[in-house]
Design a binder for these strands. Structure first.
Lengths: 336, 336
DNA sequence: GGATGATATCGAAGCGCTTCGACTGAAGCT
DNA sequence: AGCTTCAGTCGAAGCGCTTCGATATCATCC
């Protein structure tokens, strides 16, 4: 292994000078800098990460705790993870992947051992036991998702309440009077995850404000369950013409079922999905949707973490505003 | 931060003794062990990862290089990544997440800096420039996927050639005489990824051996492209009754299209998918499928990496045998 | 009963880096 | 000319751990 001492010898300087060339913490003459950089190239030098962490008390690693299985849509999780990793690299940091099932022990371990300089938590529950532990460690922390009590925390999430409202607004603007929310599975509402409940609250509040009749049905997302949910909704309220779909898995079955029943989208029935743009674009017809800004959430989480690492201790809750894109699945309500 | 010295003082022993308690590399009396463990508990001691890496020359970190965007199905990538992480933790290792777009530089960086003890590469291309670099570093390496030349490498993958064959066998056994492979998008075949080509080769060879007529069509996986592909196949060879689907995204559109066209699965048409079990199970009807053993691949990759870390320098190519599960999407060919 | 071999523990060196204080020489003042 | 100032560099300490002898104790065996 090539050490800083060898680079120093090759460049004819002391090892501290090499260190300063690398860290830019002291001024270095142009001449010396060139010699050192040449030596680094020549020898293929890479500073030893452990030695650096020991001496500087920074590992340049951000821990990311990802759900193994969760209510979140897997591609969204993946996109967030990739965005975090990419953004972290732009700050010269690496990402350590932890699974949520490591729980509080995992949090203690990585911050206690100095393995990570900061921790980003995904799939945060309303009353998440990792949060107090994380605050106890005093290390920079960012949550993707909202717990019940956000006091003193830094969080990033889509504003799901506003999202529910935006979907209703869009359908109301198009003249729909009866709308339905095809939600996540019952288990998601029972479990202590906030996003489904927040979407529902926004959906219902806005529907009331706009004077629409609103129905909400949880849905597992399988073909059969979607068929059941759709049948129930149309039976109870046959005049329903606008659907908001939160469960990504229910989208394909829903489209298929509507086609089979002879309903044409968007002429007879309008659909607004809450899903990644990619999903909306590969459906047929392409879906009007509020996108899940996975990349933005991941990148912002890292930025917040970096701000904390640089001494910014303000907590903040960053709710990204919903962005609704009109595509081919929504249109004016049919005139009765 | 709590150091080993503080633990030692609290336990009334030397710090080397604490170290040996932790590493079990020398025998320690029961009495001393208890005192040390109590002190560790009391103080909430976590060894400093950097210091440990520096002194022992092992970081206890495995780097995992994941594709940002690729031909692979995202949930499969995710499942592999999670399996790698879980299995790594069972060996006391952590996982560092790298993106494929860091390329050879990323490989050099993590192994050159001693950040990772081993590297696992996903989404390996036939002629992958990361591979020679990785071999050059001399650090333990495992590939998930097969490059063209596997000499001296350790690889783990599903045996896609046998998979193509197994799908044909299943359909042939059921009496189908005309089969079609709905493959990945053209781009996948053009790009230098092996799994699609290997599946196709196995499919065609076995079809020839069994005397079936076989058609292969690439497919983008969108509703429109699937519709086009299906129409083309049925036009060219209307007697086609067996479909093998490799592109996960094409599954839902295909089922929907067949339903619309009045064909009943499996009475009129049989489908065998190559996809994760989860996808096969949530379709309607549930699909006969060869599963993508994502978890097994991830776990085995880690095991191979650990074997190499423990000095096993044999290279090996581990091709997991396809496992075909019969469900409701395949049945006897209709009698003409 | 002294040599032998385990077993249990300690002290110290050293891993490769960062960082602090000190030093040097040149430039900028008065 | 003598002073300060500052850019540029060096040497050494020290980060917290592992690991290699060395040592001490004790049971075992002729």
């Amino acid at each position: 292994m090539v050490t800083i001492a060898e680079v120093a010898r090759q460049a004819g300087v002391s090892s501290s000078t090499v260190s300063y060339v690398l860290s830019r913490k002291r001024s270095i003459s142009e001449d010396t800098r060139r010699k050192v950089e040449a030596a680094i190239q020549d020898l293929g030098y890479h500073p030893h990460a452990g030695a650096r962490a020991l001496a500087s008390n920074r590992s340049d690693i951000i821990a990311l705790m990802v759900p193994l299985r969760s209510d979140m849509f897997v591609p969204v999780i993946m996109e967030i993870a990739m965005a975090v990793t990419t953004q972290a690299r732009e700050f010269g940091k690496d990402v350590l992947l932890l699974t949520k099932d490591e729980g509080t022990g995992g949090v203690r371990r990585v911050s206690g051992s100095g393995l990570a300089d900061a921790v980003i938590l995904m799939d945060v529950e309303l009353d998440d036991d990792r949060v107090p532990v994380l605050q106890g460690t005093g290390s920079p922390a960012v949550l993707i998702g909202l717990p019940a009590d956000t006091a003193g925390l830094t969080c990033v999430d889509l504003d799901f309440d506003a999202t529910g409202g935006a979907c209703v607004d869009h359908l109301a603007d198009l003249g729909h009077r009866d709308v339905a929310l095809i939600g996540e599975s019952e288990a998601v509402y029972r479990r202590h995850t906030g996003f489904a409940a927040r979407t529902l609250a926004g959906f219902q509040r806005r529907a009331a404000e706009r004077g629409l009749r609103a129905v909400h049905r949880p849905c597992e997302g399988t073909y059969e369950s979607t068929a059941g949910v759709l049948a129930r909704i149309l039976e109870e309220r046959p005049t329903t013409t606008g659907f908001v779909v939160q469960n990504e898995a229910a989208i394909a079955p829903l489209l298929s079922l509507l086609r089979l029943s002879g309903r044409v989208v968007p002429e007879d029935t309008s659909i607004v999905a809450i899903c990644p743009d990619q999903v909306a674009l590969q459906s047929s017809p392409r879906l009007t949707s509020v996108s899940i800004p996975a990349e933005e959430m991941g990148r912002n989480a890292v930025r917040q973490a970096m701000a904390q690492l640089q001494g910014d201790r303000r907590s903040s809750v960053m709710l990204l505003p919903p962005r609704l894109t009109v595509r081919e699945s929504s249109g004016a309500a049919p005139t009765a």
